[in-house]
Amino acid sequence: MTASSGAGSVGPRTGRRHGARHSGRGLTRWLFLLPALVLLAVLIVYPIGDAIRLAFTSWDGFSAPHSIGLSNFEDLLKDKRFKESLLHNLAIVVAIPIWIAVPYAVACGIHTKVAGWRFFRLVFFLPVVLSPVVLGAYYGIVLAESGPLNGALRSVGLGGLAHEWLNDPALTLPVVIGIIIWATFGVGVLIFLAGLANLDEEIVEAAQVDGASRWQIQRHVVFWQLLPVIEFWTVIIVIASFTAFFPLIYTLTKGGPGTATFTVDFDLYSEAFTSGRLGYASAIGVVMMFIILVTCGGLVALLRWRRS
C-alpha cells in the first residue's frame, strides 16, 4: 500500500528533548491569539493604566499633560456638580430593585402563558434594539411641554397630570430612570425567561402537591432557584447604571434642567469635551472605576454569602 504524500517527506528528527517538543505548534497556537491580545493590550489594558496616570495630570487635550499630583482629587471633593452626579447615580442604584422586579414579574407573567405571550415576548424586546439616541430623541418630542403626552392627558380631562416632564428638577431624573428601565427590561425578561425555562418543574409540582399556594411557590421555590440569574442580571445593571445613561441624557436632557440629570458618566464627558479638562475627567473615571469595582465585588460577595 502506498503511503500518502506529505508524511514521508518529513525526515526523522533526532535529539528528542521533551521540553522543547511541539514548539512549532505552540507558536502557531499563539498566532491565533496574538491579534486579539495585542488589540486588547493596546486599547484596553494600556488605557486602564493611562487613565490612572492622567488622573494625576492637568490636560486640556492640546498641550502635553503635566503632573499636578493629587489636586484633581482634592478638587473633586469640592466639586458640587460631581457630588450631585454621584448622588444621582445613588438614586439610580436605589431604583435597582425596580429594575430587577419589573423584568422578573413580566417574565413570570409570560411564563404562565398569558394570552398572546409570544406577541408580548417579541414586542417587549423592541426598545432593546433601538439606539438610546433614538429613544432620547423620541421621548424628547413626546414628553415636551406641548408634546403628545401632555396633549393626550389634557384631551381626556386629566390636564392636572400634565407636567413639564423634562423641565422639572424633581421630575426629570425619575423620568430618565424610568425610560432606562423601560428600554432595558426586555433583556431582563429574556434572561429571566431563560432561567425559568431551566427551572426544575418537578419541584414546583411537588410544592403544588404539598398544597402550596401560588404565592408560596413563587416565594419559596421559584425565587430561590432563580437567584443565580437574578445575581447575573444585577451585576449587569449595576455596570449599566454607570454607563448606560450617557447617550440618553446627551440626547434627552443634556444633564438639565440645571444639573438635575447629571450622572457621573455624563459629568465625565462634559468635563472632558465641553470644559476641556481631560485630566480632571480622568480622575472622575478613576473614581467611577473604583466605585464599580467595590459595588460589584461587594454585591457578588454579598449574594454568595447569602446563598451559602
Binding site: Y46, I48, S282
Partner: peptide, 21 residues
C-alpha cells in the same frame, strides 16, 4: 477577558481618546 467585560467603557474614554490622538 471576563474582567474586561465588566469594565465600563466610559472609564476608558479619555485614555483611548488620548491614544487615538
Amino acid at each position: 477577558v471576563i474582567c474586561m467585560m465588566a469594565l465600563p467603557p466610559t472609564v476608558l474614554l479619555i485614555p483611548i481618546f488620548k491614544l487615538v490622538l
